[in-house]
């Protein structure tokens, strides 16, 4: 896991300890050596407050400021202006905030942003490059697989995970893999069709 070089440390830091130890070494080398051997190392930590961290998002290293309590969803939406992932329940109970972390679809509202350090985060924004859209996104449009569209980014990311894992999923497998995403408008049937069309190679 790659961590920022010198996060704020709580209480007595390693640097302060080493300084102290070298002072001791001047007075009594023997005692200092014993101290070094027994001294418990302070674990790495992030203090209360903001920290600059680097996250790998859609293939790019992005620098941003987060608090320890900032969720990955809030970091994406409020700090990086990646507002595709939606905050609906904020409790892991709807799937609106679905992103991929190291290839797995997860609820970004229930994950701390700091826990994403060292991971690959992929969001819905990665599926559109200028005029170019991913076939899955195109098929959502072709199948008219949405009404209000609020669940759609999450649905697409879970669908993508399903296709990446299974290639040509059966209807049951699509239903299983999308069972963490709720659509209030009830567009499930068309969503399943969009996934199946994509699996069959349809791009229009």
């Amino acid at each position: 896991m790659s961590l920022p070089d010198e996060p704020e440390r709580r209480g007595f830091s390693r640097r302060a300890f080493i300084k102290g130890a070298s002072v001791a070494a001047v007075t009594s080398a023997g005692v200092a050596a014993a101290n070094l051997a027994q001294a418990p190392q302070e674990p790495k930590s992030f203090a209360i407050g903001e920290h600059e961290v680097e996250l790998k998002i859609n293939g790019q290293q992005r620098k941003l400021k987060v608090e320890t309590r900032t969720t990955l969803l809030d970091a994406l939406r409020d700090r990086l202006d990646l507002t595709g992932a939606k905050k609906i329940c904020d409790r892991g109970a709807c799937g609106g905030c679905t992103v991929h972390v190291d290839g797995h679809a997860v609820n970004s509202c229930m994950m701390l942003a700091i826990d994403a350090i060292g991971s690959e985060v992929t969001t819905i924004e990665s599926l559109t490059q200028g005029e170019q859209v991913h076939p899955l996104v195109q098929n959502f449009a072709t199948c008219d697989a949405m009404q209000c569209g609020f669940c759609t980014p999450g649905m697409v990311m879970s669908s993508l995970a399903c296709l990446q894992r299974r290639g040509k999923p059966t209807r049951e497998q699509v239903q299983h893999d999308l069972s963490g995403n709720i659509c209030r408008c009830g567009t499930y049937g068309r969503i399943f069709e969009a996934v199946e069309r994509t699996a069959e190679g349809a791009t229009k």
Partner: peptide
Amino acid sequence: MKPFTYILPRSLPEAATAA
């Protein structure tokens, strides 16, 4: 969430001490 200090232990004993 209320703010909190976040501790990233490097070993089990470190985690146990912190916890």
